[in-house]
Structures are given as structure tokens and as C-alpha cells.
Amino acid sequence: MIQTIQRLAAAHAADTVAVRRHLHAHPELSFEETATAAYVAAELRKLGLDPQPVAGTGLVALVEGPAGAPTVALRADMDALPIQELNNVDYKSQNPGVMHACGHDVHTASLLGAARIFVALRDAGQLPGTVKLLFQPGEERLPGGASLMIAEGVLENPAPGSVLGQHVFPQLPAGKIGLRPGRYMASTDELYLTIKGKGGHGAMPEQNLDPVLVAAHIIVAAQQIVSRRANPKLPSVLSFGKVIANGATNVIPNEVYIEGTFRTLNEEWRNEAHQHLRQLCEGLAASMGAVCELEIRRGYPYLENEPALTARTRAAAEEYLGPENVVELDQWMAAEDFAYFSQAAPACFYRLGTRAPDGRFAASVHTPTFDIDEKALAVGPGLMAWLAVRELQALAGQ
């Protein structure tokens, strides 16, 4: 069957590129993917499928195999980012200030390409189970479209035995993929601090309560939560990326506003760290006579690649691409809301190489010059289809 899937993927390669370019030229922000969802739904209906809305602008569709056979779910996210694209290409974003800078156009095009393969296999009586196609909104913004889809029942009726997800990876050349068993990506929490003091003239500090000084102490002291409270064998990241002290050279402001992020790979430690951070910020500010208000917006959980499923996925990928084109990844402290699927069902999230052999297309995701070597689109749909077929066979004990 592997040759059949490779042949079908090659036959639909031009369509996959065209879909990706259309999506890239018409990006939409998180939970605003109305036109994107309509386009995807129309493509699915052309295949004779019946897409249903979910989580607002999301879609779910089934390619049904034999009755009583297992089910596998495949997920692709559809949203773009608030970035002005700087690439000079024919398919450049036509929506000012919005860009597919994280490859979600690639993910959606790949899943549509895989859907074409599944329909052909089903019609030929070769699909060994049911494939649930999940086109997800809002990966880039809390609370994350995955959590909303799960809450609305996409992992039920039928319940998938496994969930697979793909994400672009410009650090790998097109034609290769990477994956890692176990804990792969971090949880993410947003931190918002407001430090209140008493502003005044910079030449008379004795009459003021300087929130800038308090903020500086908090930013430095908070790092001890990672360096002295966390188990050194457990990755943790605490970063502050925005500090606003809206005074002047001779004006101490009344308050300082700070934004940051906390990330880790363990839910128990995550909860404990929140408590430590709150105690430190509030206590340190109080000891200096100020007040610190800390809001922690809980984000995505850590992403766990189920080891047995990941081993099967790796073996299947090696069959399809060759062992030399499948690599093991390091842990990554970025976050992904596919983690919600990994917390609810056996899941595997793998990375699709998108860099050209000569080094082109190496710009990182979330940058205005991100783009891909479209040779990756010759790999994505067929590999996704093969992984799903092999997993269906494994779930059926074949």
C-alpha cells in the first residue's frame, strides 16, 4: 500500500501546492478563520465528505472505513499571526498585517491532501479504519482551539485510538521529519504584573515610593524560582519581555507594568511555581512598601508524545521516507495547543522539515520572512496518510 499512497500523493502534489498558496495569500487571525473554513469545507465537499462546524470556525469530517474498525484523528491548525509579511512572492499575504508565519497553511494543505488519499483508499476498499479530520481554529491564542474542540466532543463518536499532528520545522531540510517520545513541548502561562508605588520628582526620592526599583528587584529575584526552586533536571523558563515604567528622566511613575511567561514540562511543578511566584512578587513588593498585583493566565499544558505510539510513528515514517530521513528532536520550550489532545488521548506530534538543501527558507517561524521549500508539500500529505494507515492497522492488531 505504501506505493499506492506515494503515487496518490504525487498525483495530487500540484493541488496541494495550490491549496497552500491560496491559504498563504488569504490568512486570517485566530478564531476569525471564516473564509479559511469555508474554503476548506468546499474542498472537503468536492471529495464527497460532510464537514461539520466545531469551535466556531473549526471543522471536523470523517472518512469512514469498515464498520467496527478503529479510528485515528489527524489535526491541522488554520489560523495565522498578526505579522506583516516581507516575502516578495506571488502568494504573498493579501491581508495587511496578517501572515501565515507559523506554517498553518502547510498543515491545512497537507491534511486536505491526505483527505484526497483517504477517499481514494476508501473507494478502493483499502482504508483499514476511519480517519477523523480535525481542522482547528485558534492555535495561536488562548484558550486554544484544541481545548474548545475537545469540549465540543471531537474526540467522541467515534473516539480515536490515536491523534497525530504535524508542524513545520525550518531547522530540518524538506524530505526529513523529526519526533521525540515523551515530554516534548512546554506548558505556557502568561504573567501580568502591576507594581504600584508613589511617583514624584526624580530629585526627591525620599518623598516617593519608587515602583521602578521594586520592579527591578522582582525581575531579578524571580529567577531564583528557576535556579533554586526547580529541580535542575526539569526544564523551566521564566522570561519577562515587556516592562513599562512611564515616567521620564526626572519623573518617578506611580506604577510599573510587566509582562512575562513561565514554561515547564511538569504540571505539578507548574502549579507549585505559580504559588512561589505569587508569594515572591507580592512579598518582595510589600517588604519595600509597594504593592504587586500578579495575574497568571494559565495557558496550554505540556505536550506529551505517547511513547508506544511515537515508536510506531517513527517506524512507519522510516518505512515511508527511509531511516536516514527520520531524526530525534530535542525538547522544545515553545508551546502548542496540540498538547490538549496529548492530555486527552494517545498522541504524537511530529515536525516536517521545510528548509531547502542550499539553506534557503531557514527563517524561523513567527518571523515576517518565514517561508518553506515547497518540496515539503510532496512529503506532508502522503506521509500523514501512511502514518494514519499504519496506526489503524496497529490499533486493529494487524
Rank of each mutant, 00 (worst) to 15 (best):
Q126G: 09
K198N: 04
P160R: 04
V389G: 09
P381H: 08
M185F: 08
W269P: 01
P211H: 03
G165H: 05
G260T: 11
I5M: 01
A114P: 05
I219G: 00
P211A: 03
V389H: 03
K375W: 00
G199Y: 04
L234G: 03
M1N: 03
T264S: 13
W269Y: 14
P96F: 01
M333S: 09
V72C: 06
A38W: 02
A73H: 13
E190L: 12
L265Y: 07
Y350V: 05
F135A: 01
E255M: 03
G56Y: 03
L284K: 09
P173G: 04
M204V: 07
T354I: 09
L29Q: 01
Q223H: 07
A286E: 15
I225E: 06
N271D: 15
N254Y: 00
L155Y: 07
Q52A: 14
L142W: 10
T16L: 06
V256E: 02
H100L: 11
V389F: 01
A335R: 05
P70Y: 08
V106S: 10
S30M: 00
R116H: 10
E190C: 08
L234K: 06
A69Y: 04
D50G: 08
P170T: 13
F240S: 02
Y184V: 08
A159W: 01
H274G: 13
W269H: 08
V72A: 10
A290E: 02
L29N: 10
G199Q: 03
G129S: 07
R229G: 12
Q171R: 12
Q126K: 14
Y302C: 14
S162W: 04
K242M: 13
T249N: 14
G260R: 05
D358T: 11
Q343G: 11
A203M: 08
K176L: 13
Q279N: 15
R75G: 04
G353F: 03
I195W: 00
A334P: 14
P323N: 12
S162G: 11
V60G: 01
H276D: 14
E255F: 00
P158F: 04
A378Y: 02
A186Y: 01
M1S: 08
M78S: 04
